[in-house]
Each structure stands twice: as structure tokens, then as C-alpha cells.
């Protein structure tokens, strides 16, 4: 017998993978560095491991959704990320898609077939 919890864990991980990008984009209308973003998301109930977030930030930057700037004035140099104008547009569209998807999935759950 497979363990229910184990299967749910695996499926949740897949679900979370898609939502993390929305979560990250949502918090970057103000510049943030990686670790501060981890704390902000944590506070809002989205936990993300820094080892996942840091590579993700770089990938989003490469896709030109984010811009970045090193701040070397502080004691510790930090790389700040900010939503680019292009990223902003993508994020807004993505939110609409997300809401549609939620509506569809909810209607599926509320009116199961069969």
C-alpha cells in the first residue's frame, strides 16, 4: 500500500512549483534581495527554500521578467531584484490566467462528473 501522505507530498510539490513564480513576481514591485524575499513569502504562508529561490530569480532575470542591481553600500553586498516593465505586464496577465484557472478547477471540484 502506498502511503497517502507521501503521494500528497509529491503532488503538492508539483502544484507548488507553478505557484512559486506568481508568488515571487507578486512581491517584486519593490526591489528585494533573495533572502528578504524568502522571509516575506514565509510570512505570507508561502515557504520556499533559498536553494530553489536563488536559481529561480536568475532564470526569471534571464527571461527578462526581472531586473537586478548590486547594492554595495551596505556592509554586505546584495543583489536586488525588481520587476521589469515587461515582467509587470506578464505578471498581470498571469494573474488573470490564474484566476480563470482557479474558477475552472473550483467548478470541477464542486460539480464532479459521473
Amino acid at each position: 500500500m502506498k502511503d497517502v501522505q507521501e503521494v500528497i507530498q509529491g503532488l503538492m510539490q508539483e502544484l507548488r512549483r507553478g505557484t512559486i513564480i506568481i508568488g515571487v513576481l507578486s512581491q517584486l514591485s519593490e526591489p528585494q534581495y533573495g533572502y528578504s524575499l524568502v522571509s516575506v513569502l514565509e510570512e505570507k504562508g508561502i515557504s520556499i527554500d533559498p536553494g530553489t529561490l536563488y536559481p529561480l530569480l536568475r532564470r526569471l532575470e534571464k527571461q527578462e521578467l526581472l531586473e537586478s542591481k548590486w547594492d554595495t553600500n551596505e556592509a554586505r553586498p546584495r543583489k536586488y531584484y525588481l520587476l521589469s516593465p515587461f515582467g509587470k505586464e506578464v505578471y498581470e496577465q498571469l494573474c488573470i490566467e490564474w484566476k480563470n484557472m482557479i474558477a475552472s478547477v473550483e467548478s470541477l471540484i464542486d460539480h464532479p462528473g459521473g
Binding site: Y33, G34, P50, Y54, W70, R76, P77, R78, K79
Partner: peptide
């Protein structure tokens, strides 16, 4: 550089 900052934080 970024990773070092993270670990120090």
C-alpha cells in the same frame, strides 16, 4: 557573490 551573501545572512 550572491550565494556568499545568502549564507552569511
Amino acid at each position: 557573490r550572491e550565494l556568499r551573501g545568502l549564507i552569511e545572512d
